[in-house]
Design a protein around this nucleic acid. Sequence first.
DNA 1: GCACTCCTGACCAAGAAGGTCAGGAAAGTC
DNA 2: GACTTTCCTGACCTTCTTGGTCAGGAGTGC
Lengths: 151, 151
Amino acid sequence: MRVSAKADYAVRAAAELAAAEEGPIKGERLAEAQDIPLQFLEHILLELKHHGIVRARRGAKGGYWLAKPADEVTVAEIVRAVEGPIAHVQSTPPEAIEYRGNSKHLQEVWIAVRASLRSVLEEVTLADLVSGDLPESVKDLAASPDAWVAR
Amino acid sequence: MRVSAKADYAVRAAAELAAAEEGPIKGERLAEAQDIPLQFLEHILLELKHHGIVRARRGAKGGYWLAKPADEVTVAEIVRAVEGPIAHVQSTPPEAIEYRGNSKHLQEVWIAVRASLRSVLEEVTLADLVSGDLPESVKDLAASPDAWVAR
DNA sequence: GCACTCCTGACCAAGAAGGTCAGGAAAGTC
DNA sequence: GACTTTCCTGACCTTCTTGGTCAGGAGTGC
């Protein structure tokens, strides 16, 4: 139930690309802008490329750019690209598990967990992230002071 | 962003305890009822005990029982007991991370993620789970056919 | 005293997390 | 064509986590 460094890095780098005004941005600049180890970041960018989220060109004037407009890329896509499916239980999707006896309804709970994660991650696009103008539902969740205290 | 086997097992065992009518239930019975490796389960139950969620007695007529009424134990407590804090990013709580540049608002997104997880896990009690009568908000999330398809 | 059941620590294999290193392969520049 | 630049790729590494198993100790009840 945690967010890996990789996912965090991936979203941050993608946000940086989303904000880029012109031309390809090279890995080094992304790494510096977001303080991410360069070589690790390059592996991450490669994964994003393989998932069709990012494009790249080598050589002088080379670098990375988004394969799609920033308002068509969701945080969920990026997280899935580097972490795999969201909210799997024991490495299998919750809808595929059979619960017996008194835990019969646990399946619905895990499904709800996944749905609630999706309702945040699939709604926020890179454009939202860069502009700071998040969807209302997400803003509301983050607005409660209670959401900011640890437990 | 996944649910570990341990957390799944813990909640299932706790549900079984919540449904118990009388006296302590022994580990073996829990293991059989929910098809969990016994020795692994005993470690999990010990953790739950250390977190004050469960009590136990040894010897003949011994076993485990809930330390609190089933409607006062939430799924969130159980998950935290065995998995640690929910929705930490890079092993630190989202409110403690500093984001720079174009990922400034990512913090709000992770906070929203945590809040949405809490809105499910902290609302469902073991009593809800056993009766199948989940809170309305959770039911609603799980009711959408969309929530049941993989992505 | 004995059976029963929990309690605890040690151990273990496999995989993931979070990187680093070395070199190859395109693209642009002179 | 040589050279620089930047991405691309696989190998490797250390530490931690996951999902267990094993062996024995310590209360409890009869």
